[in-house]
Nucleic acid binder design. Structure first.
Length: 820
RNA sequence: GCCGAAGUGGCGGAAUGGCAGACGCGCCUCUCUCAAAAAGAGGUGAGGGUUCCCUCAUGUGGGUUCGACUCCCACCUUCGGCACCA
């Protein structure tokens, strides 16, 4: 005689975790005979503590991976650590711990925490980017990019974070401040390494091969910022060419001034001596302005006339040249033709400095007067010589043709995106494998000399200077070509380089001959389902696409896109605000795991709401899910005591009770399956709760002695397995069913069994519900309308009214419309 | 300013043209208990009438429709992204 056991998650969870690990249950192996499925979560930065936000990312993803496994796919669900980055270096400065020690310690702690989640991660494939066996391949890949001309060095004004003491990529500057520490970014001219992502701008705009959230595609599209137009060459009176980029060549006859960015080299050349002092002062002041001041749209548009003129190539008019800091040196040609009548910024500028504002595109109904504001829409060209009367849209084409015929300009596409700046003046990153030799110049480190190791005995100074620069043993080397004394590049790589290809490394994490095994990558890639936060929209997700395309063109890959499907989960909050240490509202999942078990924490995070919308953690809310786990446990305990009826449910005539039971079972399979496929874990759990509540209500009845009852109980456990893997495994085991539940096929539903026999026919009078009738599901049109009209409650409302129309929606409702 | 998402009970949310509020939290009543906790049963949008029923109700205002949380137009609020990109 068995006795009902209490649900003790803390006992069963570690037990099964150990068993699964021992049996290597979740290790993935290439098998050409089976359909692969690569599910991936964004790997974490090893900050040292797994918080509930990580769980929110990983628990539903894990349930999804388990679901796909049970569906028969050969699933790979790897995990690793994005282990390079500034916090480790800060810890080194603050607490005197070496970044390596700090990071490795954190990885060890997080590994244990990640295991407590009860996940399906294949730990045999773990990668950590800070080890030489990983970062040597960053260096190897850098050299491939370098050889193809996709990596280059340039001295350009760059975003400089004075607190992190490093330059930042454009993508890492948010509202003019450092993405990481919030310090206002300044500009500095620094020699730095860049990757030519702009070469792939057009291809990156093509999303036709991937199924990604609209939102991310829009963000990437806007970030790339493709605009089409023309480059028009104005010529200064002293002969210099001043090309400008414009999207509106049709407005060229309306140019009344030219504005150069303060950094533009021609400012120096074209400034007349009379204007020299004013211009120098203006340029100096513009340079001092912080990025945030300069980028503010509220800021007055200012500028200074530099004394020279250039000529409008279309009408030969003399155009005064100004310098103004609303023109960005880094976009287009760093010079703008001022068309005040048809550009809002030029309009304000012209108003401020009293420059003429001639109309060259007639707004609808325009009668030749002055414009109250810039007109940026379409219209007929006017005051434009031979182009007069052309619609502006056509005018754009005609003007470009004219410019090209006369050698005055050309069609041009311009992008907002800049090349990806990967140099970082930091220690804890991948050293860029380059040597500088007085004789041979810039020399790439030969592949056979890789890796260029990070020296372990670096010195971390609070001044923030790069420890590599100060390390003579690292800096001083010999030239690989001529053998003479040379120095190493001391910049390290942006950590986004590491994460741009880690999903390839998972396929052969221990390969020491090449970054990835071509055959294995061929089997696993692309990632079928990628899951992670939307905050990486224009960084990691864009860089990875670029990497894959560039590597494909180098002949190293055969895919066009890294991630076929993408899902962005939302953010989990506490009391409506983002969890943060400073607010003191960080929820530690370990506390709840030790009280209620990992299964409950997993399930609660899935139950909170739609995964993509995020949710608010509630200590009370999780109690409800824990109660549910207990209900499910107790239900199966009772089944154990009563014994599980043997046999399979028979086909054919059954009692209404059995038909109900099987309908519930099959409907639930359908709901749960479709919900997981749509990532609707919250409604999936609601369906499981309803099913469990129903089973509890018929538990002692006749049906609980039929084979249909066994089917129902087994189904419940199978459907619960992705969400509550430990509880499901334990119950499955207790019922004497074969190990492991996680290797069982996912149940399938039978539409006929799931179909309703009776429906509630809603009867409305003039759109208001007046009656509900129980009718057979196949009820005919006439029959339904007849029953509706015959209902006493309905007749009450039809008193003294004439029926004008009766609408019948099969299987749903009857609406009786009365005449007025 | 531009682009995008979202607004539903006390709370998280469900329903994407057809019974608004599934499921859960909280709250109320009851059972068990010396008592409490746990567990279980019932109730729970608002207002009116109290077996039963009616009216109102999905950010605001219009519209389409027999019928709108759902579709269309305008507006308000919140959140996310971009922000002088010529």
């Amino acid at each position: 005689m068995t006795v009902a056991k209490e649900y003790k998650p803390t006992e069963i969870e570690p037990k099964w975790q150990a068993r699964w690990a021992e049996d290597r249950l979740y290790e993935a192996h290439e098998d050409p005979a089976r359909q692969k499925y690569y599910t991936l979560v964004m790997f974490p930065y090893p900050s040292g503590d797994l918080h509930v936000g990580h769980w929110y990312n990983y628990a539903p993803a894990d349930a999804f991976a388990r679901f796909q496994r049970m569906h028969g796919f050969n699933v790979m669900h790897p995990i690793g650590f994005d282990a390079f980055g500034l916090p480790a270096e800060n810890a080194a400065v603050k607490r005197g711990i070496h970044p390596f020690t700090w990071t490795v310690g954190n990885i060890e702690r997080m590994r244990e925490q990640l295991r407590s989640l009860g996940s399906v991660f294949d730990w045999s494939r773990e990668v950590a980017t800070c080890f030489p066996d990983y970062y040597r391949w960053n260096q190897w890949l850098f050299l491939q990019f370098y050889n193809k001309g996709l990596a280059y060095k340039a001295k350009k004004p760059a975003n400089w974070c004075p607190s992190c003491n490093t330059v930042l990529a454009n993508e890492q500057v948010v509202d003019g401040a450092c993405e990481r520490c919030g310090t206002i970014v300044t500009r500095r001219d620094i020699d730095q390494w860049l990757l030519r992502i702009t070469d792939y701008a057009d291809e990156l705009l093509d999303f036709s091969r991937i199924d990604w959230p609209e939102k991310i595609k829009i963000m990437q599209t806007n970030w790339i910022g493709r605009s089409t137009g023309a480059e028009i060459v104005f010529r200064a009176e002293s002969g210099q060419e001043i090309p400008v980029f414009t999207t509106r060549p049709d407005t060229t006859f309306g140019v009344t001034f030219m504005v150069l960015a303060p950094e533009h080299p021609l400012v120096e050349q074209l400034t007349t001596s009379a204007r020299r002092q004013a211009v120098d002062e203006y340029v100096e002041q513009a340079r001092r302005a912080t990025e945030i001041e300069r980028l503010s749209t509220e800021r007055e548009k200012t500028g200074v006339f530099i004394g020279s003129y250039c000529l409008n190539p279309l009408n030969g008019e003399r155009v005064p040249i100004w310098v103004g800091d609303y023109v960005l040196y880094t976009y287009g040609t760093g010079a703008v033709m001022g068309v005040p009548a048809h550009d809002t910024r030029d309009f304000v500028f012209a108003r401020r400095y009293g420059l003429p504002i001639p109309v060259v595109i007639a707004p609808p109904g325009w009668e030749g007067g002055e414009l109250p504001e810039a007109y940026v829409g379409e219209g007929a060209m006017v005051n434009s010589g031979q182009f007069d009367d052309l619609p502006s849209k056509e005018g754009i084409e005609r003007v470009i043709e004219y410019l090209e015929e006369h050698g005055l300009g050309k069609r041009r596409v311009n992008y907002r995106i800049r090349d990806w700046l990967i140099s970082r003046q930091r220690y804890w990153g991948t050293p860029i494998p380059i040597v500088y030799c007085d004789t041979c110049g810039v020399v790439p480190v030969p592949v056979e000399d890789l890796p260029v190791l990070l020296p372990e005995d670096a010195e971390f100074r609070p001044t923030g200077e790069s420890p590599l620069k100060l390390h003579h043993g690292f800096v001083n080397t010999t030239c690989p070509i001529c053998g003479q004394d040379a120095v190493r590049e001391t910049d390290t790589m942006d950590t986004f380089v590491d994460s741009s290809w880690y999903f390839l490394r998972y396929t052969s994490p221990n390969d020491d001959r090449e970054p990835w095994d071509r055959e294995k990558v061929g089997y696993w890639l692309p990632v079928d389902q990628y899951m992670g936060g939307a905050e990486h929209a224009v960084m990691h997700l864009l860089y990875s696409r670029f990497f894959v395309k560039a590597l494909r063109d180098m002949g190293l890959l055969d895919i066009d896109e890294p991630f076929t499907h993408l899902f962005n989960q939302g953010i989990i909050t506490k009391d409506g605000t983002k969890m943060s240490k400073s607010r003191g509202n960080v929820v530690n999942p370990d506390d709840f795991v030790s009280r209620m078990g990992a299964d409950t924490v997993r399930a609660y995070l899935m139950f909170i709401g739609p995964w993509d919308q995020g949710g608010d953690w509630s200590d009370q809310g999780i109690a409800g899910v824990y109660r549910y786990m207990n209900r499910a446990w107790n239900l199966v305990q009772a089944v154990l005591l009563a014994g599980l009826p043997s046999g399979e449910p028979a086909a054919g005539e059954q009692s209404p009770g059995v038909r109900d039971l099987r309908r519930w079972t099959h409907k639930t399979i359908r709901r749960v399956t479709e919900d997981i496929e749509r990532f609707r874990f919250n409604t999936m759990l609601a369906a499981l709760m309803e099913f469990t509540n129903y089973l509890g209500s018929v538990q002692g009845s006749e049906v609980a002695r039929t084979p249909a009852w066994s089917e129902a109980i087994r189904t419940l456990l199978l459907l619960l397995a992705p969400t509550a893997p430990h509880l499901a495994e334990e119950m499955w085991h207790e019922l004497g069913l074969p190990y492991s539940i996680h290797n069982q096929p996912w149940p399938s539903w039978n539409e006929a069994l799931a179909a309703e026999e009776q429906i509630t026919l809603v009867v409305q009078v003039d759109g208001k519900v007046r009656e509900r009738l129980n009718v057979p599901v196949g009820i005919g049109d006439e029959e339904a309308k007849g029953q509706a009209l015959a209902s006493a409650n309905v007749r009450k409302f039809l008193d003294n009214r004439r029926v004008a129309n009766v609408v019948y929606v099969p299987g749903r409702l009857v609406n009786i419309v009365t005449a007025k």
